Each structure stands twice: as structure tokens, then as C-alpha cells.
Amino acid sequence: MAISIITKEDLQEFKTELLESIEKLLQGNTSEQKLWLRTSEVKELLHVSSGTLQNMRINGTLSYSKVGGMLYYNYKDIQKLMMDFKRSPIINTHGKDER
């Protein structure tokens, strides 16, 4: 069995290659995101029921487009909605998250 010695330089090169690979994967995922989502995809993404999603359409919380009887939602609108409702953790005196 042959013994290989790994140097600090080898580890640094591996780290650099690994980080570059991870960056490429992350960039690839964002570009693959569909711009328009169907109702079922939005319900899954937001973890809401059909009724809740209908209420969001009715009260104008989430805009949509209707084409040939199908409803489509813009992914950017969903992202904005999620950011608008993003909450900061409330920490009590015991250091526990009280959301």
C-alpha cells in the first residue's frame, strides 16, 4: 500500500476547486428557476391550501395571470411576498426564539 502525503498547498487547491464548483451549482439553480408557476407549485412553495391561495388572489396579496383557464403566478412576485412577510426572531430573556 503506497502512502501519499497531502500538503497544505494540496488542501488549499482542493478548497478552491470545491468552492468554485459549489458556486457554479448555486448559480445554475437560480437560472433554472421557472419564471411562471402553476397553482399547485405555488401551494407547495408557500405551504398553503387552495382556499388560502384563492383568498390571496381575491384580496390582491398575490397577483396572477389567467391564460386559457390556467392560473400562473410570477416567481418574483412570490419572492417579494415572502420577503414582505419575513419575520425577525423575537428573543425572550431566556434566549429562546418566541415566533
Rank of each mutant, 00 (worst) to 15 (best):
T61E: 15
D97H: 06
S63P: 04
G68I: 15
Y75F: 14
N92L: 03
D10W: 01
Y64H: 14
I91N: 02
K86M: 12
F85R: 12
K86F: 09
S21P: 00
D84R: 15
T93M: 11
S40W: 09
K66V: 13
D97V: 15
M83A: 12
N29G: 01
I6F: 04
L62R: 02
S49A: 09
G69K: 14
E9N: 13
L35A: 10
W36I: 03
R87D: 02
E41D: 14
F85M: 09
M1Y: 02
W36K: 05
Y64E: 01
L18Q: 07
M56I: 08
I91L: 12
K76R: 11
S50L: 07
D77Q: 11
R57W: 10
Y72K: 06
V67P: 00
G60V: 11
I22K: 13
S63G: 14
D84F: 06
E17Q: 09
M56H: 14
I22T: 03
K8G: 11
V67F: 13
I78F: 09
M70P: 00
L37N: 03
I90E: 07
E20I: 02
G69V: 11
K80M: 09
N92S: 07
Y64A: 08
F14V: 04
S21C: 05
Q54W: 10
V42S: 02
E13I: 07
E23D: 12
T30K: 13
S21K: 13
N29A: 06
K43R: 15
I22C: 08
S31Q: 09
D97G: 00
F14C: 06
V67Y: 14
I58W: 10
M70R: 15
L53I: 07
F14G: 01
W36G: 00
R38F: 05
S50I: 01
N59D: 15
S31G: 01
S21W: 04
S63V: 05
M56F: 15
E13D: 12
E98G: 00
I3C: 04
N92A: 04
L19S: 05
S63F: 11
K96S: 06
D97T: 10
S21H: 06
S4T: 12
D77S: 14
